[in-house]
Amino acid sequence: METETIIETTDLTKRYGRQTAVNGLTLKVKEGEIFGFLGPNGAGKTTTLLMLLGLSRPSKGAATVCGLDPLRMSKEVKRHVGYLPENVGFYGDMDAVQSLEYVADLNGFKKGEAREKIDDLLDLVGLKEEARKKTAAFSRGMKQRLGVAEVLIKDPKVLFLDEPTLGLDPEGAIQIIDLIQSLNKEKNITVLLSSHNLHQVQKMSHRVGIMIGGNLIAEGSIDSLAEEKFGVGEKEYSLEEIYMKYFQEV
């Protein structure tokens, strides 16, 4: 695995009025890593992702993504980063193919190139059958898979996934997780993932960060976090136990 740093933040802070959404976040994510962002609702995970995309302006601090400053080079950063927002939306009167075509258009694809790519992607996410169905009729799981296909059109180096498995049935969640893992292995895509589902995060992530109230409380591999909290021992601790331990201490 490569060890180059692909995302770096130093003292990244975002304030809304008096409220601090993200407080002095300093973080490094290496290329080819799956990094799990944990934390309760409103902990500042989404805000962090938006700042890394250059969609939100940090109050203080700086970030680099793929060696670029998202604040000044937002467009270039977005060329390399695919962002799947929580509850991704679609134009209801478009079908899956049209929806993908629009995203391809926005990415500056030529008509012919896009066609082929869209077919491949629909195959990859398993929506071949529903290619001509209007997205308004899509189930939650199908929407999520179409969302993944949309972010993959640009051949991203980095994926930001905001709650990718939220509201999915277990089978759908497993499909998404498998897809993310295979993308990470085969294409060496770095994944920054935020989730509440600790089991899934534990299963996928190489490293995790725990964020509570805008502060990054802990960061590291699951084993190292367990060691820090419970000491070295025979017992394997689940991420849930570790998380709760951190959570209680705050």
Partner: peptide, 17 residues
């Protein structure tokens, strides 16, 4: 409408100004 649909953020996260 794009905001309530959740499509605005998706469009803005594409490489466009």
């Amino acid at each position: 409408r794009e905001r309530t649909q959740g499509t605005l953020i998706k469009v803005l996260s594409q490489p466009i100004y």
